[in-house]
Every structure is written in structure tokens, then in C-alpha cells.
Amino acid sequence: MPEPLIVARGLKKRFDEFEAVKGIDVEVQPGEVFGFLGPNGAGKSSTMRMIACVSPASEGTLRLFGMDPAVDGAKIRARIGVVPQLDTLDTELSVQENLWIYGRYFDLSRAECRRRATELLEFAQLTDRADSVVEHLSGGMKRRLSIARSLINEPELLLLDEPTTGLDPQARHVLWERLYRLKQQGVTQVLTTHYMDEAEQLCDRLVVMDQGLIVAEGSPRELIDRYSTREVLELRFGAGTNDQFGPQVAGIGDRFEVLPDRVLVYADDGEAALAEAHHRGLRPESALVRRSSLEDVFLLLTGRSLAD
């Protein structure tokens, strides 16, 4: 096994009284796509900022490439690329100027900056917008430019904080495809997301975070197998009556969960569960059988849905 690229032991982050990260252990191997999954406020972004060497750890140890961020922060940052949660593009500069100046921050020569910028604009499908003002770009374009910018130093590790939040489905798929290409090129990626489908699509391995702690770890498939049933039956009763009908499904399948807008029944055979519900005289407005997803894992582990 090669040396892990990131090693965190008992990592904590405190802001005055508030403890955002309460001691986590993480290892990320080279070439891996690793995800932090969790709702807002779970401590994902604080963790990412510590890994990006822009926020000092309050406690615990953190090593990237075998180096300590407190000592070699600049050296580590020279080898990583960061796509922040909110775009920090330079709105006073054009699209390609954004790439040029960022390359200069990494001490690349001007000629090298231009060469790489041309390549990256191609990669981000922004070549024809090279001279545009950043402000006039769409959300998806800005995101792609942020990713292109984070690649200017040819990073060995790419950090993406909620890379597709706020994007329309088509823009997300374009982005996912680009990230997959980077994975094929061997770029290690660490990302945070609260989208289940994103985590399932992109991550080789992930941890579920809740209230500053890691509550589960594994590949998306492993987590689903370990924590959920094969299928899920979703029953929707009339608005405001889910509480009332929910308990009546008790005993169908392994367990059930009542949400404000629907009742979830966890069962290995969803169709059989639905037949049993009908047999009990339940008449939901709609019923749906689907496969278990990370969303269900999260619901079980934290008792809350991710959308909260």
C-alpha cells in the first residue's frame, strides 16, 4: 500500500466556544476520490479548510504528503488545487486573466501561465469566452472556471467543497464528467457534498459526517448494504396525515420512517411490502418502490434527512 496522501488523527476545529469538528480520523490514498457527506453544519467545510492549509487545526495531527500544514503550509498549498464552496473568481479580470494571475500566485512564468490557461480553457469548455468578463458567465461556467483555475498548478490533490451546489442538472453532469476525467488522470480528489447521487457517482469511498463527527465510513455500496435494506417503499398519504397512517405500516419490512411528506418502509422486497400495505387496507395517494440510496443510510445514521 502506498503512503496515504492525507492522514488526520483526532482532528478538531474550534471557533471560540463552538466546536465545528470534534475529533475525526481520516486517511486518503493517492488516486482516490474521497467524499465528506453530511448536512449543512456537519463540519465538512471546516475540515476542508484545514486540509487546504488555510485554517489551522485546533487539536490533533494533520499530514499532507507527509508534511505538517503548520510548518510547510505554503509548500503543501503549492501541490493542491482548491475549488471553494462559493466562487472566489476575480470579477475585475477576464476569464483567461483569472487563470494567468492564479498561475502567477504559484510562481509560474508568464509563458507557462498562458500555455496552461489555453489548455484549461479547452478542458473547461470556455475557450470562446476567454476574454469575457467573469460577471457575465452563467453559474455552471463560473464553476467550470473555478475548477480550471484550481488546476493551473497541476495539483496532485484537488479539494472540491460542494462543487455542484446551485447548478442545474445538465451543468452538474458536465462537471461530473470533467471530474471523472481528472480521476482517470490520477488526480486525487476530496470533495464534500450533501447530494447523495453526487457522492454515489463520484466517490470511491466516503465518510458520513454529522455534528462534527464521522458516523460511518465505506464505499457508497458498502454503506447501503450495511445500513439499509435492498429496496425502499415510499408511501405518500394526504398532506398532514402521514403521521397518522405511518404507524400502521409497522411490521411490514425491517423498519419504517415517517417524514413530513411521506412514509418510508425499508424492505428487501418492495413490491411485497406494497402488497402487504394494500392488504392492511392502507390507501396512499401514491406509492413508489425504489432501491436504497445513501439518503436512506444518512437518515438511519443521523435521524435526519439531508435536505434539512
Binding site: A52, V54, G73, A74, K75, R77, A78, V82, P84, L86, T88, L89, D90, T91, E92, Y102, Y105, F106, D107, S150, N153
Partner: peptide, 14 residues
């Protein structure tokens, strides 16, 4: 507002 410094600090800039 523009967060120019946040962007710069993700690089070797301090």
C-alpha cells in the same frame, strides 16, 4: 465581497 484574498491564500501566497 470579491474574496480576492481568500482565493490568493489557497495558493502559496500568505
Amino acid at each position: 465581497y470579491a474574496r480576492i484574498y481568500d482565493a490568493a491564500l489557497a495558493t502559496p501566497m500568505g
